[in-house]
Every structure is written in structure tokens, then in C-alpha cells.
Simulated assay, not measured.
Amino acid sequence: MLTLLRNRCSPWPGIGARLAPEHAPMGRSTLTDLFHLSASVLLPLSRHLLQCIASAEVVLADETPLHVLDVKKTRLGYLWTFLAQNEKGEWLIGYRFSMGRASTTPKAVLGGTTGALVVDAYTGYNSVTLPEGRVRVGCWAHVRRRFFDALATAPEARQALDLILALYRVEAQAREADVVRTAAHRELRQQHSAPVLAQLRVWLDAQAPQHPPKGPLGGAISYALKQWDALSRFVSDERLPLDNNRSEGALRKAALGRKNFLFVGHEAAGENLAGLYALVATCEANHVNPEEYLADVLLRVQTHPQARIGELLPHEWKRLRAADSS
């Protein structure tokens, strides 16, 4: 029975097929029941994971649509991801499902917290950044994407792309020197990235009057100028990433899921999916085998002291297992 639970509680598609070699046929409804039961049992963990992320100084966030079954059609829901890195450098990845893209979800997860929030230009995050709250940090990958799209009709966009590339080269230099998120990283940015930003700003200001704001290049320039303060904050804070790519990466698994299961059956199913996604994604980010983790934690969580529930999160579970075996 433990083997069956282990194989069914993972949110990734193709679970039923993996049971065939074990000669354990299982109906779809039973698989679904086990999926929801596992999510329910693990709910204290997925909730605590989001709380840990919300308490971090730097949080990354993004969202993606997810279809929800309705009468004769589907409705559009959203899967949100929130990420943070703890003091040990371990990544915590949380998800939240909602039936809309309004600011309700960011506010529910991050409301009342302070620090930095790394996001794109979507205004739905304003509820936790304005007027008081987290400092908004922009994403250079989103900026670069717009200039790249404009390149086909406006070759002059190449200059902006070259300058953005220079910013990323400074980050590569920091990684090679193994000084990421240190004072030396900040010094590198102030010495090399700041002049690049100044050069790019001069170019943007000069090009803006020459291109209609609704055109490809004009739109890219406007997008960058409107976010300039948010895009420049990384220079003075070594903890801030240059982009929000890690959040987008965390949502790629959801995109793969969409291609397999197409939609979730109802809102509660989306919430359960988000909870299980969070635990499995955090396992993978910290080199923890998700099957071994879930098989063990599904049993532990039911008797584990609530005050120490954080010990069962994937990154802490590694240490708990090591202590048990010693």
C-alpha cells in the first residue's frame, strides 16, 4: 500500500502507467481519490512552505493560466509561483491556485511582508508593493525579449540587446569568481553594470521620440523606461537577481502538465495540484528524491508536532533523515 501511495501522490502525469510493472491495476477514480487525499494530508506542509517563502527578504513570483472544467466548457484559472532562497542557499518553491488573475493571490501570500519582490510589469503585484510593502524589482529577461522581438523590423534594437548582454556578462563573471550575493558581487555591479545602465538609458531616451509607442521597438523602449527604477535596483543590492527566469522555470512544469491533463476538474483540484507541485518542485530544487520524500512524509506528517512542521519540508527533511540514520 505504501508503494501505491508513493506512486500516486506525485502531481506529475503518467502515474497510472507506472503501476503496470507492479501488476496493480487502478481505476481513474481511485487514483484521483488518492491524489486528493495525499494533498489533504500534506496541506500543512505546503502552507508552511509558502509562509517560509513569504518571510524571505527576496521573493520571486510569476503566474500562468490553467484551465478548469466547467459545464460544456472550461474556465480560466491561474497557477502562481513564489520562490525564495534561504540563508543556506536552498531554494523554496511554492504554488498557489486561484480562479482569477487579480491581486488577491499575491496579497494573500505576501500581504504585510517587506523586502523585495522580483516580478514582471504585471500590475496585479501592486497590492503588495504599493504604497508600502515590498520593493519592486524588474526583470531584464522580459525587457530583452521585447527588444529581440523588435529586431526583425528595427535593426537598431541590436544596440539595446548588446548592452543587456553586457549586464549578463557581469553576472557570469560573478559566478565564475564564486562571489554571487556577496559584497564583491555588489562591487562588480557598481563598477561594471552601472556604466552599462547609464549608457542604455541615454540610448533609450534618444530613441524614444523616433519610434511610435505602439510599434515593436517603441513598445520595448516604453516598457523599459516605465520600469527603469525597478530594473536598476539590482546594482545596489547583491541579493537581487537580474531577472525572474527562475520563476518562469518553476512554471514550465505546469506548462508540461497542461499538455498532458489539459485542465483540472474544479477549483479544489487546482489547489491540491498547487500544493503537491510545491513539495515536489522544492524536492527537485534541493536534490531530494520526490518519491522517497513523499512516501516517508505522508506517514510522518500525521503524527509530527505542528510546532516543528518545518522539519518535514524537503530541504529540512534531508537533515532529518541523516540524523535518523546516524
Rank of each mutant, 00 (worst) to 15 (best):
T32N: 11
E63H: 08
G100A: 13
T81Q: 03
A56D: 03
M99R: 10
P44D: 07
T74W: 07
G94L: 07
L66W: 01
H23N: 15
K88D: 14
L49V: 11
C52D: 00
R47I: 08
L92P: 03
E22G: 10
H23Q: 14
F35A: 10
T64G: 05
G89C: 11
E57D: 10
I93W: 00
L60E: 07
V68H: 01
Y78G: 02
L43C: 09
K88I: 00
R96K: 15
Q51G: 12
T30W: 12
S55N: 11
T81I: 07
A61W: 03
G94I: 03
G100R: 14
V71W: 08
D70M: 10
G89S: 07
A61G: 05
L19V: 03
S103D: 10
H67A: 15
V41D: 02
H36V: 08
P44R: 04
C52P: 06
V71F: 11
I53E: 01
D33L: 12
R28C: 08
A61H: 02
M26K: 08
M99L: 14
L79F: 01
L49P: 00
L92Q: 06
R101E: 06
L19T: 01
R96C: 06
V68E: 02
P106M: 04
D70E: 15
L19G: 01
L34P: 01
D33W: 15
H67P: 01
R47N: 12
H67S: 14
K73G: 06
R75G: 12
L69K: 09
S29N: 13
A84Q: 06
L43R: 12
L92M: 13
L79W: 00
R101A: 10
E90Y: 02
T104A: 13
L79P: 02
R28S: 11
S98K: 03
R75E: 09
A84S: 15
H23V: 11
P65V: 10
S103G: 07
A17I: 11
S38K: 08
H67D: 15
A108G: 03
E87K: 08
W80R: 09
V41W: 08
P25S: 07
A102R: 13
C52I: 06
L43P: 03
I53F: 03
S55R: 14
S55I: 05
K73D: 14
R101I: 04
F82D: 04
I93K: 08
H36Q: 09
L43G: 01
A102L: 11
D62K: 08
K107D: 14
F82G: 02
F35W: 10
N86L: 02
A24Y: 05
K88H: 15
E90G: 03
S98M: 03
